[in-house]
Design a protein around this nucleic acid. Structure first.
Length: 372
DNA sequence: AAACTTCTCAACCGCTTGCAT
DNA sequence: TATGCAAGCGGTTGAGAAGTT
């Protein structure tokens, strides 16, 4: 095709619109409706091409346009829709009342895209940028799924519940990739991480059951399998998060004594040899990892204590940091993890790991059949 | 205060799609 | 079926604003 642009006609104005032009356009459309854009400018007394008029109207003058900054909820919606629809700005705009495709596109390019990049998330694929994040420790058991040993299967199964608890994955990622920012924790990651994950998983599972949290809807599973995203391809078993017998056992018990069960969950699991752990508080641990000042490290040392290697982590005295009930309340406040905002303000590459679970969170929020 | 850089976003360009003939 | 037209879409541009040196 390649028709000549209509604005090449001589005498047609280009560039910014004046208030007078806006008034003419608004007045005409109010009186006659949009009609034929090609004939509209002539009828409205505008020296513009129809295309320019249409753009001005749809992107700026339309009365139902919402001006001002995007809300946190709008931003979340854009990210979620973009992960499904890609750069289909008009399709995204259709689901954001009052926002235009142009506005959303601009906001994506100037704000969201940059933020995702800072967080180590590829804004195109919404997956962690593997060039920035060392995921080898997480991917190793996943890759082993293709040629698994029994030990590989056990390790992979232990990771299943991460699908429902993005906080845990972030913590895991933080510990696994801990660099200079968290030297003390880095010394213990290999020994403690699997245990932390399992203990916290059991605790979270008990809490989830206590709160009657419903499992993801069937269409979510279908959607995730259809997506072919990295997570679904690499770790298909993650979809069936609650199939872990250990978790099921915890869930069944939690039905009867939810709080006690949750509190006991982390204590019932044996820490690695040489470690004593009183309790786990994922948000607190995250804060320590991300802001490892002296007081935080001291807190870390009272939360996780090594009797075999205490060069970096403190005295070896182990004390609870908070009551089980308090921790339960805290740990259940951020189940709807997102890329950013108040609930996940730490803009580090550690957040990237959370993106691996994106489709799973997303599918719980949206009726994905709308987009298929 | 001036010069320079970076950011924002309205508007444009060129291509695709859908429809009528 | 081929062609032409109108509308819509996504990528890009550039002027002005805001921030920095």
């Amino acid at each position: 095709m390649g028709r000549a642009p209509c604005c090449e006609k001589s005498g047609l104005k280009k560039g910014p619109w004046t208030p007078e032009e806006d008034e003419k356009l608004i007045a005409y459309i109010k009186k006659h409706g949009q009609g034929n854009w090609r004939t509209l400018p002539k009828n409205a007394g505008l020296a513009r091409c129809g295309k320019s008029c249409r753009l001005r109207w749809t992107n700026y003058l339309r009365p139902d346009i919402k001006r001002g900054r995007f809300s946190f909820e709008e931003e979340e919606t854009i990210i979620q829709l973009h992960s499904i629809l890609g750069n289909k700005w008009s399709a995204i705009a259709a689901r954001l009342p009052g926002r235009t495709d142009n506005e959303i596109k601009n906001y994506w390019n100037t704000h969201i895209r940059k933020r995702l990049l800072r967080m180590g998330i590829d804004p195109v694929t919404h997956a962690p940028r593997l060039d920035l994040l060392d995921l080898s420790a997480l991917l190793k058991p996943a890759a082993a799924a293709y040629y698994p040993t029994q030990a590989d299967l056990d390790t992979l199964r232990a990771l299943e519940p991460l699908a429902n608890y993005p906080d845990l994955l972030r913590l895991a990622s933080t510990l696994l990739s801990s660099g200079p920012a968290a030297p003390a924790i880095g010394d213990h990651q290999n020994q403690l991480l699997p245990w932390i994950l399992q203990a916290q998983m059991a605790q979270q599972a008990a809490v989830a059951m206590a709160q009657q949290v419903a499992p993801p809807p069937p269409q979510a599973e279908h959607f995730m399998q259809q997506q072919g995203g990295a997570t679904c391809q690499i770790m298909p078993d993650l979809v069936h998060a609650n199939s872990n017998p250990t978790v099921q056992q915890q869930l069944a018990a939690a039905q009867h004594q939810p709080q006690d069960m949750a509190a006991a969950a982390c204590h019932s699991m044996q820490p690695p040899s040489g470690y004593e752990v009183d309790s786990l508080d994922v948000p607190a641990l995250m804060q320590m990892v991300q802001q490892p000042d002296a007081s935080n490290l001291q807190q870390w040392s009272s939360t996780v204590t090594s009797s075999s290697n205490n060069n970096n982590v403190g005295s070896g005295v182990s004390t609870p940091s908070s009551s089980p009930v308090a921790r339960l309340n805290h740990s259940t406040t951020s189940t709807a993890t997102t890329y950013g905002g108040a609930g996940a303000s730490a803009s580090t590459s550690n957040d990237a790991a959370a993106a691996a679970l994106f489709y799973m969170q997303l599918s719980e929020l949206l009726d994905v059949s709308d987009y298929m």
